[in-house]
Computed example of a mutant assay.
Amino acid sequence: MMLLAIEQGNTNTLFAIHDGETWIAQWRAATEASRTADEYAVWLSQLLHMHRLGFDDLKGCIVSSVVPQSIFNLRNLSRRYMNVEPLIVGENADLGIEIRIPKPSEAGADRLVNAIGAHLTYPGDLLLIDSGTATTFDVVAADGAFEGGLIAPGINLSLTALHEAAAKLPRIAIQKPDRVIGKDTVGAMQSGVFWGYIALIEGLVDRIRAEWGRPLTVIGTGGVASLFEGATTRIDRFDPDLTIRGLLEIWRRNSH
Rank of each mutant, 00 (worst) to 15 (best):
L4C: 05
Q8V: 10
T11W: 10
T13W: 06
F15N: 01
A16S: 12
D19Y: 13
D19N: 15
E21L: 09
E21C: 06
E21K: 12
T22G: 12
W23P: 02
W23Q: 04
I24S: 05
I24C: 07
A25R: 13
A25V: 05
Q26G: 14
W27Q: 11
A30R: 15
A30D: 15
A30S: 15
T31P: 13
A33R: 14
W43V: 02
S45H: 07
L48F: 08
L48I: 01
M50V: 06
M50C: 07
D57F: 11
L58W: 08
G60V: 00
C61G: 12
I62L: 11
V63M: 09
S64A: 14
S64G: 12
P68W: 08
S70T: 11
S70P: 13
I71E: 08
F72V: 07
N73V: 01
R75N: 10
L77I: 05
L77E: 03
S78I: 07
R79M: 11
V84C: 13
V84P: 11
P86D: 01
I88E: 08
I88G: 03
V89C: 10
V89I: 12
G90C: 07
G96N: 07
I101Q: 10
P102E: 13
K103W: 06
E106L: 13
E106F: 06
D110H: 05
R111H: 05
L112K: 12
V113M: 08
N114H: 11
N114R: 09
A118T: 00
P123C: 12
G124K: 10
D125R: 03
D125Y: 02
I129W: 00
I129S: 01
D130Q: 10
G132E: 00
G132R: 00
T136W: 10
D138K: 06
V139S: 10
A141C: 09
A142S: 13
A142V: 04
A145H: 06
E147Y: 14
I151C: 11
A152H: 11
A152C: 15
I155E: 03
L157P: 03
S158W: 01
L162E: 07
E164M: 14
A167K: 10
P170K: 07
R171A: 13
I174D: 08
I174W: 10
Q175S: 15
K176T: 08
P177Y: 03
I181H: 12
I181V: 14
K183E: 12
D184L: 05
D184Y: 09
V186Q: 04
G187R: 04
A188W: 06
S191N: 04
G192D: 00
V193I: 05
Y197P: 02
L200E: 03
D206A: 14
R207T: 00
R209H: 03
E211M: 15
W212Q: 04
W212D: 00
G213N: 11
L216K: 07
T217G: 01
V218A: 10
I219N: 00
G220V: 00
A225H: 03
L227W: 11
F228W: 05
G230A: 02
A231F: 05
D239Y: 02
D241T: 02
I244E: 00
R245Q: 09
L247W: 03
R252Q: 14
H256S: 12
